[in-house]
């Protein structure tokens, strides 16, 4: 089916460019540098940042936001470093992901990736404690990912039993790491998320 531009959202590119990090989207001249240097593309062939950018420029909002490949980016910055037009692809994709997350929150979209859950869990922990608290993060993330607390705990054990023991033995999961950190300036962190995150 041909792509009918009049059915697309020509404002989508402006929406992305309005996000922090998305500003340089339109500089892209589709040279393939990002895609060819991307370590993910080797493993997930469907993932093509170049194409996501052109789809965004054309205004294929729905297709871009629901694209599961959005969530496999590592933010390794290879694309950004090499991009001859300074498109800052990693940041652009991050901007698109944020739009998608907002759309999901608004109930307009279902994201088929646990990544937003993980990111959100991470941010919650951060808000709560001011620093990363591994156990707290896992306890929040897994149940959300798996849909229930029990399933989540099972999955967590599967993923982390060996690793946890290994770390414990080596003294890397000692008492200090088991206890939640408590940064004194937690209230400020909370404020930051509140004031900066909801623009």
């Amino acid at each position: 089916m041909p792509i009918k531009t009049w059915e697309l959202d020509p404002n989508f590119k402006n929406e992305i460019m309005g996000e922090a990090g998305g500003e340089r989207l339109a500089s892209c001249f589709q040279c393939s540098t990002c895609t060819l240097g991307c370590p993910i593309t080797e493993i997930v062939p469907s993932y093509n940042p170049r194409k996501i950018i052109q789809m965004s420029l054309l205004g294929m909002r729905k297709e871009v936001l629901s694209n599961p490949d959005l969530w496999v980016c590592l933010i390794c910055q290879t694309c950004t470093a090499r991009c001859p037009q300074d498109v800052r692809i990693a940041d652009v994709l991050s901007a698109i992901r944020r739009i998608a997350e907002r759309e999901e929150e608004a109930g307009n979209l279902k994201i088929d990736s646990p990544r937003p859950l993980f990111d959100k869990a991470f941010q919650h922990q951060l808000e709560k404690y001011g620093r990363l608290y591994d156990i707290g993060l896992a306890k929040e993330y897994y149940p959300k990912k798996e849909g229930s607390f029990i399933k989540g705990m099972k999955a967590m054990m599967k993923d982390y039993k060996d690793f946890g023991m290994r770390m414990f033995k080596k003294g890397k999961m000692g008492p200090k790491a088991m206890l939640a950190p408590k940064v004194k300036g937690r209230a400020v962190i909370k404020k930051i998320f509140k004031e900066m995150g909801e623009e």
Partner: peptide
């Protein structure tokens, strides 16, 4: 048509990757 960003010397050859735009593959 591909702006090849890297040349990797591997086992006596220089490997480049490019996008086969027609097939949509690397």
């Amino acid at each position: 048509r591909s702006r090849v960003p890297e040349v990797i010397p591997e086992e006596g050859a220089l490997t480049v990757k490019f996008e086969n735009l027609e097939k949509g593959t690397i």
